[in-house]
Design a protein around this nucleic acid. Structure first.
Length: 575
DNA sequence: GACGCATACGTCACACTATGAAAATAGTG
């Protein structure tokens, strides 16, 4: 089994959890958590770095010891430190940490005092009323534990951004109608356009005496009130989604937005800058001694530490602060920059509308072009096209283009990349198209080397324009296939090919880190919806969000080009 | 455990609130 970065990150996190329960040096624990984060967010595979004997110590938070552990994990799938800890502590004890209300201290108490080593044992002890007798515990926590075990299926759940959006936006509308409420905004990872969201953070400004908190916990979708204070409250919706509300003064709004938007790592970095300048930054403002010198707007908060406003999508502490300081923040791509969509299906394969209907919907969005890119024959379940049907569709598109004003329908295909890297349709028919998307839809389990070679060979074909959904992942349900994305990006650059950022909310593939890699390599990214209906053309906004998280600017995106600029770019890939 | 420098050792990622306990602990961006 190849070891992925996520596996290494999870082993480091497990080590940190176990050390935490043992009450070890907090800085040592933090070192492991930092390393986990570094591994998780790295755009490339650690095992490649090990294989190529690259220096792991160049990675932030990785020194001699952790570099050796990474190497050990890559080679053996585990490491001795972790195995030793696993022997020292019960196997399932880290499960206890997932129960809200239980942290390392209480877990240690449960384990030492009551010999509790698993959720089942915990449940039994709580039922018998033994838990309440321990110091640091009481009846409330005991009850909380029992509830949490009952509903634990839904704890820690993440939701697709696109699933959360309607819930969050409806709730915001509800809160805006509460008496005395002046302002309601969504912050958190939602505002940063993360592809999945764990909870929703809402920020409000309300006049004194406004019943906003009472109305919030009385929301009819709320099935559980997790916390209710004067300024802060949390509820759980029927969907399992947790929503946190924080009520602040107008004078603190910018500081609160900054705090509530995160990310945590970004906040810490900003607060540290404040500290160095003799300032204290919290969610109420920026303070010099007791005096608030900023807080009403985010601009002022950033200005207080000598920075311009940093767009929420970049706030991950992955270089945006340095970029801001040096005046080289990217001018991120905007929805209005998009001139067309290069990936869409119709009823000819597995889409729901006709070419004309899709074209009209695209025109209504203000697009200059829309490409029709059906599946090819191999994908039989989608009624994929063979050469004869594809030629028939080309003729149909010619006819429609004769009638349409303002929008051009481009002729494309989403052709399957076969196991050996050949394409599912012959070169002669592909050559008649405006451009070709090649996608992997089968054999996701090929070993990395084979999968990578397969894709590189496909890109070598004479007619190949865009690599569709390059890693094949499905958020929350399917892992990406094992592919050397660095080599793919490099090959795209050498061959003059483009990469897709598939905007479907379940894909968002390329991800943010890969977008940055493509940008750095000078490979243009095409943000496409892969729409199977007119409604899905609106998914473009999720693609834009992801592209912005990936630092992409207008110039980095293929379909910000006008049709006139686009045609020669496509034509170059079709020789 | 990493990092930076004093190459041995001190410092290291902030700042705050709710909860439910009776002083801490957990959880939040």
């Amino acid at each position: 089994m190849p070891v992925h970065n996520a596996d290494i990150a999870s082993m480091f996190n497990e080590i940190a959890d176990l050390l935490d329960i043992l009450g070890e040096n907090p800085f040592r624990i933090r070192a492991y958590r930092n390393a986990a984060r570094t591994c998780q967010e790295l755009g490339r595979e650690l095992r490649d770095m090990v294989e190529k004997q690259e220096d792991l110590k160049t990675l932030s938070g990785i020194g001699d010891d952790l570099a050796a552990k990474i190497k050990e994990m890559v080679e053996t799938g585990t490491c001795r430190t972790l195995e030793k800890l696993r022997k020292e502590l019960p196997a399932a004890i880290t499960d206890l940490l997932r129960i809200p209300g239980l942290g390392p201290k209480r877990v240690k108490t449960l384990w030492k005092e009551l010999k509790i080593e698993s959720l089942d044992q915990l449940k039994e002890a709580a039922r018998q009323g033994k838990v309440r007798t321990l110091t640091g515990f009481g009846e409330k926590i005991e009850q909380q534990i029992l509830n949490a075990i009952k509903v634990r299926a839904e704890t820690g759940q993440r939701f697709l951004m696109a699933v959360v959006a309607p819930y969050a936006e409806t709730l915001v509308g509800y809160l805006k109608n509460v008496a005395g409420v002046r302002r309601v905004e969504i912050a958190g990872s939602f505002r940063r356009w993360k592809e999945t969201v764990g909870d929703v953070d809402i920020l409000a400004v309300a006049e004194a005496g406004s019943p906003i908190i009472d109305r919030f916990v009385a929301y009819d979708e709320a099935v559980n009130v997790l916390a209710k204070g004067d300024t802060k409250s949390s509820i759980k919706l029927r969907s399992g989604l947790q929503v946190d509300l924080r009520v602040v003064d107008d004078a603190s709004f910018g500081a609160a937005m900054n705090y509530f938007t995160g990310s945590k790592a970004h906040n810490i970095a900003i607060r540290k800058l404040g500290q160095q300048a003799g300032l204290k930054i919290n969610e109420y403002g920026v303070f010099k001694g007791d005096k608030r010198i900023a807080g009403k707007t985010e601009e002022k908060v950033y200005k207080s530490v000598g920075l311009p406003l940093i767009p929420p999508e970049l706030r991950e502490d992955t270089g945006e602060i340095e970029a801001a300081r040096e005046g080289r923040l990217p001018k991120l791509v905007e929805p209005d920059d998009i001139r067309g969509d290069l990936h869409a299906h119709t009823i000819a394969s597995d889409g729901q509308q006709t070419i004309l209907e899709m074209a009209q919907a695209a025109a209504e969005r203000g697009y200059e072009y829309l490409a029709i890119t059906e599946h090819s024959r191999r994908l039989a379940m989608t009624n994929g096209l063979d050469a004869r049907r594809l030629r028939k569709q080309m003729a149909e598109i010619d006819k429609i283009n004769g009638k349409l004003k303002g929008l051009t329908v481009l002729k494309g295909i989403e052709v399957d990349i076969l196991e050996d890297g050949s394409l599912d349709l012959d070169d002669d028919v592909l050559g008649e198209l405006d451009f070709v998307i090649g996608s992997v839809h089968s054999l996701f389990k090929l070993p990395r080397e084979k999968q990578t070679e397969r894709i590189l060979r496909a890109m070598d074909r004479p007619h190949f324009t865009i690599l569709g959904h390059p890693t094949g992942r499905m958020l929350l349900s399917r892992e990406p296939y094992d592919v050397d994305i660095e080599r793919v990006i490099q090959h795209a650059r050498e061959r003059g090919r483009f990469l897709e950022l598939n905007a479907h909310p379940m894909r968002l593939d390329l991800d943010d880190a890969h977008c940055r890699m493509a940008k750095e390599a000078g490979v243009l990214v095409s943000i496409d919806t892969d729409a199977h209906s007119t409604v899905e053309l609106a998914n473009m906004r999720y693609g834009i969000g992801q592209a912005r998280r990936g630092w992409l600017e207008k110039k980095d995106v293929l379909n910000t080009r006008s049709l006139k600029q686009l045609r020669p770019l496509l034509a170059k890939t079709m020789k």
